[in-house]
Design a binder for these strands. Structure first.
Lengths: 266, 266
DNA sequence: ACAATAGTGTCTATAAGACAGTATTAT
DNA sequence: ATAATACTGTCTTATAGACACTATTGT
């Protein structure tokens, strides 16, 4: 399960806004295999559960949070992805408001921590073949913490021939992440980025009251791209609802607080 | 596996174009449970396979086709979805050019046939709750053949509260389809409809040479909606490449043939 | 005063919707 | 000639990008 949240970085200037960071929850493995490596939280599905029930249970155990946005991503079944046995993993993405989570509730010996996420395109390449093309995209996934930094490179290859089309992720290099979790994280980030612009899922990362600038910052850290203020506000109008509250800010005009508006969005 | 293709219906007028139909491949079960009912083709994954390899193998066995568009859809794990045991199904969608398939190659006693697909919204409802809303959409799925017609009703419920969001499909009524396959088919159609407008996957349903009107018809049967010719052609320009061939048609101006252009589409 | 953010107005570029017009064929 | 489809042109509408302008605060 890829559990995302957005948090503020400490602000250095009394009148500057704090920067936002996209965070992912990882767990340091306390057992073999990959002892000591960081992994996505997750576990085995019980025979009396659906995969979604299992995901919600794990989420509750790990973060104490219960009501969140949860979306199935992809089912991974590569051979050898777990050295112990043939394991299929049905991955999920969760979006939560970071303020709600009390970490370290982990009852097992495992160690949970938030990592800031960066996922950048390194190289893009398109090559013609006999009856189609191969497109390769290499991304760098960087997960950082006060204590550790992990970097992985993931290559996404789309092969197209006259009639067929197939897409494949491969881990080129990987340092510190357990299993094929770099792939799963890449998959989650791409889904998140893909959906953020045409749905309202980003609202799940917001507290109940927020400013439009904060919402824009959330979009920006997810997309890793700056957005134009005017255009963003035009679009956000449909997702939010005005309140009469204002953020008593520092050193500049106070900004109006908004709340999510599930009504308006179709 | 939901295997889609598009086929021509017999034309009644020498100068009228044949209508297109979206078709889905189903298999009549020759064993318990659901003996005699129609089901999606599929099978069990072998321990030496990924789910995708298994899907491609089943596809080959069932249709004799090898190089096709294949996309993972969703993994179903509802309790009781198979009366025999707890079974997780990782569903795939395949798009093929119908002219390539020779059916009845089925080596097992099962019976394979194409069914025309109709998936229509029956009712849409949005209800406010204490801290969110519940949105319900009921669809009618109709699968028809010269010999049989099956109708199922699927209800898609999206529940949203202050922080959470969950989506659920339920089969309201079902006549003739095995297991929870009505759900899987609904899921496949929704994915197909969703992707058709912003990707070029529809091209996988086309033969190597085709007219723009044919391509538009394919879009129309998938979306179950008429499109404007001028606008469609403007968009399709980016996906196709002119050839110097023309369809020697009947009773009207011959139309230029195009081929897929994987190059232009980004 | 000033540095910073909040919020608005407007011009432009691009894409989509709507619809009418012309072109070309087999019978 | 006619019924049908092929294809193009253009007006309108909606949306997104770009950017400048005004408003308001705490120190």
């Amino acid at each position: 399960m890829a559990i995302f949240t957005v948090m503020d970085r400490e602000k250095d200037n009394y009148r500057k806004l704090p920067e936002k960071e996209l965070k992912l929850l990882l767990i340091q493995r306390g057992a073999h295999p990959y002892l000591g490596k960081w992994a996505l939280p997750g576990g085995f599905v019980r025979p009396s559960e659906t995969t979604e029930m299992a995901a919600r249970r794990e989420l509750r155990e790990e973060t104490g949070v219960d009501n969140v946005y949860l979306e199935q991503l992809y089912t991974f079944s590569d051979l050898g992805r777990d050295p112990r046995a043939w394991v299929m993993s049905c991955s999920y993405m969760a979006l939560i408001d970071g303020r709600k989570v009390k970490l370290e509730a982990g009852d097992d010996a495992d160690n949970a921590a938030w990592f800031s996420v960066s996922y950048r395109l390194l190289r893009e390449q398109k090559e013609r073949t006999e009856d189609g093309y191969v497109k390769t995209r290499k991304h760098e996934l960087k997960l950082a913490n006060e204590n550790s930094t992990m970097i992985a490179e993931i290559e996404h290859t789309v092969t197209r021939t006259e009639t067929s089309s197939s897409s494949d992720y491969a881990i080129v290099s990987n340092d510190g992440l357990a299993f094929d979790h770099a792939k799963i994280i890449a998959c989650a980030i791409e889904r998140l980025r893909g959906k953020v612009s045409y749905t309202d899922i980003a609202l799940h990362l917001m507290p109940s009251l927020f400013t439009l600038t904060e919402l824009q910052q959330v979009y920006e850290v997810i997309l890793d791209k700056e957005l134009l203020k005017a255009a963003f506000r035009r679009k956000a109008e449909h997702l939010v609802e005005e309140t009469d509250h204002y953020a008593e800010s520092a050193g500049h005009r106070p900004s109006r607080l908004f709340r999510r508006n599930w009504e308006r969005f179709e």
